[in-house]
Every structure is written in structure tokens, then in C-alpha cells.
Computed example of a mutant assay.
Amino acid sequence: MSKKCAITGKGPMVGNSVSHANNKTKRRFMPNLRTVRVTLEDGTTRKIRVAASTLRTMKKQSK
């Protein structure tokens, strides 16, 4: 299963881990994915993986 948000397509980003001695090694920043149940238009439910930031935005827009 891919580490991507099903709605926004947000995926892993690449950056550097920087130590106190300023040594740099590559690392990945993973999205904060949550599995949520979504009811589709035809009445069926489906589990999708959505980023937590996307859930916040969806909750904000539903108000």
C-alpha cells in the first residue's frame, strides 16, 4: 500500500537529518496518514487512507 493521501495525493518528502555537528544524512518525511471510512454516493462504505491535515481541512469546510 502506498504512503499517499487518497484525496490530496500528498506523499513522502525528502530532506536532511542535521546532527548537532552539522552532519547531513538523507531522510524521508512521511505524511500522517489515517484510515477513515467514507460512504460513497451509491451507499457503500469504503476505507481510504487520508492525511490528518486533509481531515482537518474537510472538518473545517463542513462547518
Rank of each mutant, 00 (worst) to 15 (best):
M1Q: 15
S2E: 13
K3R: 06
K4G: 01
K4F: 08
K4A: 00
C5D: 06
A6G: 08
A6N: 07
A6I: 00
I7L: 02
T8M: 01
G9R: 01
G9M: 04
K10T: 06
P12W: 00
P12E: 03
M13E: 07
G15C: 11
S17N: 12
S17A: 15
S17P: 12
V18E: 11
S19F: 11
H20D: 08
A21T: 07
R28G: 05
F29V: 14
P31Q: 15
P31K: 06
N32D: 09
N32K: 03
N32A: 02
R34F: 00
R34D: 00
T35R: 08
T35M: 12
V36Q: 04
V36R: 10
V36F: 03
V36E: 04
T39W: 05
E41M: 10
E41T: 14
E41K: 10
E41A: 14
D42V: 06
T44R: 07
T44A: 12
T45D: 01
T45Q: 05
R46G: 11
R46E: 09
K47S: 05
K47I: 00
R49S: 11
R49L: 00
V50E: 03
V50D: 01
A51L: 00
A51N: 07
A52S: 11
A52L: 03
S53A: 05
T54C: 00
L55C: 01
R56I: 09
M58E: 13
K60S: 08
S62Y: 15
K63A: 10
K63T: 05
